[in-house]
Amino acid sequence: MPGPTFLRGDRIDLCPIEEADLPFVQRTINDPAVRATLRSSEPKNMRQEEAWLESLDDQEGETLLVVDADGDPVGTVGFGDVDGTWGTAEVGYSVAREHWGNGYATEAVALVTRYGVEERRLEKLVATVYAHNPASMRVLEKCGWREEAVLEREAFVDGRRVDCHRYAAFADDWAPGDDRARAALAADDDGAED
């Protein structure tokens, strides 16, 4: 059962992660198909998930649960590696396989981008995407991010070195061109008047 809504989107909300959400988080992070899109290569049992949840309290970043209209968890989104002097952080996101293709990641990244720059005074957000994951690059582009570099043979996936594409969003220069991203941001604006 996810915690109270923290950031409101159109078809999804972002909520704090509670203990009760860990079975979902654990199933998703261990799924070979999801893992292949993330920087995660070790099995995570429930004990390790519980320790991870506790460790979030000591970190400067935020990790939130992406929750659909039925109140069910569909993924996670957040940022870490915060440098308060530089005003930078790295954004990451994942969506459970059965919820791919619904635009949930786009909404989640749009909400987190605005939260990072408007509430946390971050000035540059970055994200690193495997070259073999164009769907994830589309998510960032829809949210108004742009590619700033290709990190050649940066990572090791499925037995070989692979390129990573590095994306960035600047506080004074990001504008989502996509309907789904704009709908998410508009919903949060409306939410203030509820």
Binding site: Q26, R27, N30, D31, P32, P43, K44, N45, M46, R47
Partner: peptide, 19 residues
């Protein structure tokens, strides 16, 4: 056992849990 970590044709490898 916990969720699937590796999946084969006839078997899955899952996380080791308290249970």
């Amino acid at each position: 056992p916990g969720p699937v970590f590796l999946r084969g044709d006839r078997v899955t490898l899952r996380t080791f849990e308290e249970a």
